[in-house]
Amino acid sequence: MNSTLTSKVRDAFQRIVNYLSSEKGKNLFAYLFALLTLFLFGWFVVWRLPRSLVFQSILGSSSRVTFILEGMGLTVLVSLITLLGSMILGFIFYLLQKSSFKYFNALVDVFTEIIYGTPMIVMIVVMAFVIGPAFGNIERNFFGILGLILYMSPYMKNVFQSAISSITEEQYMAMDLFGFTSYQKYRYIILPQVARVLMPPLMNNFSIIIKGSALLHVISYPEMYQVFLEIQSKTYLFIETYFIMWVLYLSITIPLSQLTKFIERKWSL
């Protein structure tokens, strides 16, 4: 009885040792140490702070937590709207670029060059405070978000371009040869491939949008960053608010990037 237990323990121990010396186990170790390094750095930072941290007056107040969650919700919402808007606009730009009408090609080219040279935050303020008023200043938030959408659309255009060009001329020839109808070509061959190639860079852009949406605070749009600015002005707890804000952004973007990696693996050709 006792000896079987001992041998079981020994077996289990052996299995753990085997796992840890395997490639996977080494990987696990590496990641644990990387996390530990960052944790120690964080601990050092907190230890060096001029005062100890107080989260009670922020996280203990249900009205503030609701306020934060609303801001977080708006961050996600505005990011989704920007994703959708820039996808539509990006696709239109892609079509204009492919058009045989030279004016359209030039228009896309000039626009792309301007966007590439503009910081995101400048795009937002210019849309909200320069271009918006020219249209009667209907809604500052609308123009600010439109700025974000416009900023992202050339990048989305590139995503479509590379995804669609990934289907070779010869594949189209094969589709013709076997006699697929247009619908069948798109349904069974073109779209499934485009979706796969499209997904990772699309998710990447989504992550850029989420991070970029924080800039909407310059027009006082009540997304997450703005919400924390307002909490700061009431509580004066600058360190804590920045800390919570950072963690909350990571809680959106890290799962997203992990999902992207998962999809990339699962859908690879």
């Binding site: 010869e170 094969a174 796969r196 050709l269």
Partner: peptide, 10 residues
């Protein structure tokens, strides 16, 4: 039969 198999990759 094409030069590079030209199978649908997905």
């Amino acid at each position: 039969v094409f030069q590079n198999h030209n199978l649908f990759p997905h």
